[in-house]
Design a protein around this nucleic acid. Structure first.
Length: 272
DNA sequence: CCAGTATCCTGCAGGC
DNA sequence: TGCCTGCAGGATACTG
């Protein structure tokens, strides 16, 4: 579900509401997720600690508390729900962090492609998922970095955009949008795109991510922020999910292709 | 090295 | 109505 703009929207919501608050205890059952979930371990680490900050790297969230960090990835279907303790718990609520003042932070994830994993001090720098991540489009100089990372690669540029080791945070929606915006054919290999056009692509990536954050992310079906708000970028999508519909620039029906196992919509006229 | 595929899991839409 | 199939916002471990 969540790509960078959705994760950033969640990060901002969490930062507003949990930083400075103390954890009473943690509930949940051990369950298999992308990494095994161990609520007991998380509870031992978080109990009586206060959250001190919420960071994001690519699509990962890092909730700092006490002497470590809770590393969270929301996979395809993960959600954070911040609510009163009295409210009913949704199915697939795997982990609940009870806070002072009658509120709790719940991790809900039907498909269990996400995870929450406690990283003690020092573990963060060694975590394989994090060390593998490429530049974050909102941190680094993407216009300089993206051409450098893509220009010698034989893989379709669509697959390059989804490769978190090169640039971290782009998923299927925003890869599709950025390529449409930049006028680049998704199947074109990185090495067959001029540095000029790769720079344009980098600018489009930043532009589409910024615009989506501005709208609170994209709600296709079930994305909500930590505060329960939908995102309104879906109405601005020009390519993702629009195969067969007219291109907003030239009116030609958008085509559909599957690249690297992921569906892509693109305009055979505007995208070269 | 690569590119491509299978895999983890549930929910939902669409076809019959 | 009910059953079946395919597909979904992700990441990684295989295969060839």
């Amino acid at each position: 579900m969540p790509e960078l703009p959705e994760v950033e929207t969640i990060r901002r919501g969490l930062a507003r509401h949990i930083v400075g608050r103390r954890v009473l205890r943690v509930e949940g059952r051990a369950v298999q997720m992308r990494r095994p979930l161990d609520p007991v371990q998380i509870g031992e680490a978080l109990q009586d600690q206060r959250f001190t900050g919420v960071r994001r790297r690519g699509k990962y969230l890092l909730l700092d508390a006490g002497s470590g960090t809770l590393l969270v990835h929301l996979g395809m279907s993960g959600q954070f729900v911040l609510t009163d303790t009295a409210a009913d718990r949704a199915p697939h609520t795997h982990c609940v962090i009870l806070l002072e003042a009658g509120q709790e932070l719940r991790l809900v994830d039907p498909r269990r492609f996400g995870f929450a994993d406690w990283l003690a001090e020092g573990d963060e720098a060694a975590d394989a998922s994090l060390t593998r991540l490429g530049v974050d489009p909102l941190d680094g100089d993407l216009v300089a970095h993206l051409p450098c990372a893509y220009k010698c690669r034989r893989v379709p540029v669509k697959s390059l955009l989804l490769d978190q080791r090169l640039v971290a945070g782009i998923g299927n929606i925003y890869a599709t949008e950025a390529l449409w915006m930049a006028g680049i054919r998704p199947l074109r290999r990185g090495r067959d795109i001029s540095v000029d056009r790769l720079e344009t692509l980098a600018k489009c990536v930043v532009e589409v991510l910024d615009a989506a954050i501005e709208q609170g992310g994209t709600t296709l079906k079930d994305f909500v922020s930590a505060e329960g708000a939908q995102g309104y970028f879906a109405v601005r999508l020009q390519a993702y999910g629009r195969e067969g519909l007219p291109c907003a620039r030239c009116e030609r029906p958008l085509k559909r292709a599957v690249i690297g196992g992921r569906a892509t919509a693109w305009c055979s006229r505007c995208q070269t």
